[in-house]
């Protein structure tokens, strides 16, 4: 009896406040879409870091014979200098950061060079002697590049330290900025949603004031009076969350999986399974929104 009664109350409330309920659904939909987009973007960033940071290394280019760099004043790097730099990389101070060091000799560099540019005319005139010895350093945590660079750069025989990661940085910067923007919009929309849900519940409570006063008179408990209002908000927010999940799923399915992943194949993109992963989070946020708003409103408008 009670369940049926509460359900009929909710039905009445939603029907009577159709326009408001719809606006709550739409606002939650949009705010949660932005929340979801921000989360997906961060997942994308994490994906790409996982993928690429394994592959990137720090290259320490050692002085060739004809360099003008200040540290190369002593001419081509000597055997002794190479060992010294290797010693630094293997030292206790850096051993936590360095995973592996690989010396690329002039011959190896030449082979790699020929492989890449061998079919060009000018490349034919390059000799082994003109190639540069370099140390390829694989880091335990690629983000801590600076520690290694500071230690090695400026030593005699080191011409330049290059972090391959820096090539990727602009891309991550764009993704991170986009995340911040999406999160900012999400925050704004969430505030709007809370205000709107609060107003909706208040209107709903006021339009049913007579009814609630009578229910109170015949001894209905607080929870029993407030439950329909709370559930009204929760249902609207839940619908919004479901719409957001649907929207994100469609976006990922048709824009990312079908189009981006086909066009740009060297990136491991987020997939619809990631959308399912964040679905519970979005639903949780949606329901929390409604719960907070109704608690605030109802404690004021439907007191015993």
């Amino acid at each position: 009896m009670r369940v049926r009664f509460v359900l009929s109350q909710i039905g009445n409330g939603l029907r009577r406040n159709m326009a408001m309920a719809t606006s709550v659904v739409l606002v939650t939909f949009i705010s949660l879409t932005f929340v979801g987009a921000a989360i997906l973007l961060q997942m994308q960033v994490a994906n790409m870091k996982d993928d690429w940071y394994d592959k990137v290394e720090v290259s320490i280019f050692l002085c060739p014979g004809d360099s003008f760099a200040a540290t190369c004043a002593g001419g081509e790097v000597t055997e002794q200098q190479v060992e010294e730099i290797q010693g630094v990389l293997a030292s206790e101070a850096l051993s936590d950061y360095v995973e592996e060091v690989y010396v690329e000799t002039q011959e190896e560099a030449f082979v790699a060079f020929q492989e890449q540019f061998g079919d060009q005319d000018w490349a034919q005139r390059i000799t082994v002697d003109q190639m540069q010895i370099s140390l390829r350093v694989k880091l335990v945590d690629p983000e801590l590049y600076q520690v290694v660079a500071d230690e090695v750069a400026g030593r005699d025989g080191v011409e330049e330290v290059v972090d391959q990661r820096s090539i990727l940085e602009p891309l991550f910067l764009i993704l991170n900025r986009t995340t911040v923007m999406a999160a900012g919009l999400a925050a704004l929309m969430i505030i709007t949603a809370i205000l709107l849900i609060t107003t909706t519940i208040r209107l709903s409570a006021m339009s049913r004031q007579r009814e609630t006063s009578i229910m109170r008179l015949v001894g209905a408990s607080n929870l029993f009076i407030q439950l329909p209002f709370m559930l009204e908000g929760a249902i609207a927010a839940l619908l919004g969350a479901l719409l957001a999940i649907g929207g994100l799923w469609l976006g990922v399915r048709y824009i990312v999986e079908d189009w981006l992943a086909g066009t740009v194949q060297w990136v491991n993109f987020v997939s619809t399974s990631d959308v399912w992963l964040i679905a519970p989070i979005l639903i949780g946020i949606g329901i929390a929104l409604a719960a907070i708003s109704s608690l605030v409103t109802l404690s004021r408008y439907t007191k015993v």
Binding site: M1, R2, E211, I214, M215
Partner: peptide, 23 residues
């Protein structure tokens, strides 16, 4: 203090419904 959109029966029944009496 009756509910104008509810029938006589429902107006009386509400007093039992809200305190959870069986159907």
């Amino acid at each position: 203090r009756l509910l104008n959109n509810k029938s006589v029966f429902d107006n009386v029944a509400i007093a039992l419904q809200v305190i959870g009496k069986p159907r």
